[in-house]
Amino acid sequence: MSDSPVSPAPARSERTVPPSGDPLVVLDRVNKHFGALHVLQDIDLTVARGEVVVVIGPSGSGKSTLCRTINRLETIDSGSITIDGRPLPAEGRELARLRADVGMVFQSFNLFAHKTVLENVTLGQTKVRKITREKAEQTARTLLDRVGVGGQADKYPAQLSGGQQQRVAIARALAMDPKLMLFDEPTSALDPEMINEVLEVMRQLARDGMTMVVVTHEMGFARSAANRVVFMADGRIVEEAAPDQFFSNPRSDRAKDFLSKILHH
């Protein structure tokens, strides 16, 4: 078991690879505004290599924005973000290179609509990593099998169910061999019966030791796969704790209030 100060491993975690305590992502006093709205307020967050951090909080609290600043889809006004010891560069080739190391999975899948499933998973490898087509296809097929959609390789995204599309999106991100995966409400756009197939893929990823930041309302996933829960409200991190501790004994009133609303319905 890890005794790292940033990430005490919870008792019920299924994880086999304990987080090392070696910081991979560090956010230091990050602030961001959308016009007059102060959407991220003095955010400090460290994610250790191999750690799974679940971000929860009411709608509009800034969870997506937080997630998107980590690969600089949103710029920040002040503070700093480093990934693997390197500060996020400004827009350009260097940033593109860094983004290739950070996988992102969106609520709305965002698969390339004009490309087949296979092409979706090979495109980044061939165009960004400059891997040969044969090798990229081999990797893509392995990954598609791993997420359980190997049989759909030649279809277009619109021909797949939401759950299948999201699993392809995960495979597309994994094909870049990322150091870190960001998930922004990956199951919120799915019909209930498809949520589990996506969560199961994510659980397996967590067991394999992938570093993950997951924005989700799936408390079951947070309990079983997270090392740490980060609770956000109104642009601030209000509370951080191991999942068991957070769900059984939240400290802040905001968290108590939030949990009572989502657990009783």
């Binding site: 080739r93 992102m104 390339f112 980044g124 991100a173 870049m176």
Partner: peptide, 17 residues
């Protein structure tokens, strides 16, 4: 949809790609 370009940029594609 904006998400298409965001997904491409997340993969590390440049603006012109």
């Amino acid at each position: 949809p904006l998400g298409q370009a965001e997904a491409a940029r997340s993969l590390g594609m440049t603006f012109s790609q």
